[in-house]
């Protein structure tokens, strides 16, 4: 299922692709249950009233509703990858609200979906995505796609 595609830099343990599908992994405080995405790279809980130090991986809901969206018509500056010998292709970005977690998670929208196909409030689902690095190497990221 992973196709052997390595996780993009900085995203180790941010998602998991297993027999049950592709999921984003939040950090969940073992003391108070607070969720963080991305998982915190440092010990400690984001809740100011909690002194918990330990976080366990917690699979987030893979569906939500579209909180907002936009796109990028111009090439972003580095470190956004510029694969060799390829034209820049504009991409849409989605902010998706997960109901159970009451959390909004950003992501690129799957290739080929234009902003004209998006509406605030519509159901969205998580899918694996691919980013091509400036060295031309495929990297695993997450994407959002319309659909329940």
């Amino acid at each position: 299922m992973t196709d052997g595609i390595p996780a993009a830099p900085g995203t180790d343990a941010w998602f998991h692709d297993g027999p049950d599908g592709f999921v984003l992994l939040a950090g969940r405080c073992t003391a108070c249950g607070a969720l963080s995405f991305p998982p915190r790279p440092i010990p400690g809980c984001p809740n100011p009233d909690c002194d918990g130090l330990e976080q366990h991986p917690h699979a987030l809901s893979t569906t939500g509703s579209l909180w907002s969206y936009t796109d990028a018509r111009y090439v972003p500056p580095p470190p956004y990858p510029r694969p060799p010998d390829t034209e820049f292709s504009p991409y849409a970005l989605a902010a998706v609200e997960l109901d159970a977690e009451r959390m909004i998670v950003l992501g690129q929208v799957a290739p080929g979906v234009a902003v004209s196909e998006l509406t605030v409030g519509m159901p969205m689902r998580l899918v694996p995505g691919v980013l091509v690095s400036s060295a031309g190497v495929e990297e695993r990221v997450w994407n959002w796609r319309p659909g329940a």
Binding site: S68, T70, Y80, A95, G107, Q108, V120, L131
Partner: peptide, 19 residues
């Protein structure tokens, strides 16, 4: 946010405007 999403400042602004 730049490396993974290509999310520039105007991209975040676009999210807030559309909202």
């Amino acid at each position: 946010r730049f490396r993974l999403l290509g999310a520039t400042n105007p991209a975040y602004f676009g999210l807030y405007a559309r909202r």
